[in-house]
């Protein structure tokens, strides 16, 4: 089973990021994981990234919905404007699934899945299988 080359996590809650970092390490399914504590930082990162000639995109972006300043939906809107050619999939993480959120997610093509927090090793395993199928 091949590993994920790079995973990016965007969540304003520090303990959640710490936990996910540990989960990623324990899963041994990922070579590099980057954690952002805010959507603005993440967006700036991608903006700078696409200016370079050869850039590596993450295999998946794990995105929290409820964040102050710029929430998950705002991030996706801004991210879409960057027009990154390679299809990139986003997994939305939330503490509570609501029907409205699901419908909104379905409208946006980029979103691969909706998951409840926290991410567990099993989630990473099944996501990896799904990603292999997709590519």
């Amino acid at each position: 089973m091949s590993k994920f080359k790079q995973l990016i996590f965007i969540d304003d809650d520090n303990p959640t990021n710490v936990y996910h970092r540990i989960i990623v390490e324990q899963s041994e399914l990922c070579e590099e994981a980057i954690f952002f504590e805010g959507a603005v930082e993440a967006y700036e990162y991608f903006k700078e990234l696409v200016k370079q000639d050869n850039y590596i995109l993450p295999d998946l972006i794990f995105l929290d919905i409820n964040m102050p300043v710029m929430n998950g939906w705002d991030f996706i809107e801004e991210f879409k404007k960057l027009n990154i050619p390679t299809p990139l999939f986003i997994v939305l993480l939330t503490t509570s699934l609501s029907m409205m959120d699901k419908e909104r997610a379905d409208e946006i093509g980029l979103i691969h899945k909706f998951l409840n927090k926290p991410l567990e090793v099993e989630n990473l395993v099944s996501l990896q299988e799904e990603c292999l199928i997709k590519s």
């Binding site: 303990p15 540990i22 503490t95």
Partner: peptide, 18 residues
């Protein structure tokens, strides 16, 4: 409120699992 309470609660549960 329930959302904002769930988040730290999840964290407690997660770290206890670890």
């Amino acid at each position: 409120a329930s959302h904002d309470l769930k988040s730290p609660l999840n964290n407690i549960s997660n770290f206890l699992n670890l």
